[in-house]
Amino acid sequence: MEELLFLTLIFLLLSFVFNKRKTLLGVKMGLKMFMNLLPPFVTVLIILSFVLALLPGELLEKLLGADSGITGFFIAAGLGSVALIPGFISYPLAAVLLKNGVSYPVISVFITTLMMVGIVTLPIEKNFFGWRVAIIRNVLSFIGALIIGACMALIWGLL
């Protein structure tokens, strides 16, 4: 937290010295993005707070924890493929999941599918690439996410 504050202040100062107008524009843009993120962000946290309170403590760890194996990967990949969560929200969400027992490799599968695979946005993708390209790209990305998760599990175990 202190590092981030420090980093932001340094960049702000540097930017301000070089160009006042640009700096103000950048800060404004950043704050606008923040305001646009805030309502969906709070909504996701609210839903997550309820889900975590409803689920028995060990269930999440059993399904998506370090020992969940392939099942955990497939649940995470499935959720990540269907969900339509902006990236900026997915990371805080992932941080909360980690705290509640979900393992890093499973998080990597979830995040990768969330970013690379989009079942809900498939119709949009089809408009640009056609069905064949869109579907094959998504299928390959789904497999790729599982491979990334598997490598992550291997390396994470060694570290």
Binding site: L4, L5, L7, T8, F11, L12, S15, K22, T23, L25, G26, V27, K28, M29, G30, L31, K32, M33, F34, L37, F41, F88, P92
Partner: peptide
Amino acid sequence: IPLMFILIGLFEV
């Protein structure tokens, strides 16, 4: 989060 977005805004410009 606001700090990060300020960084991203500066990055954008």
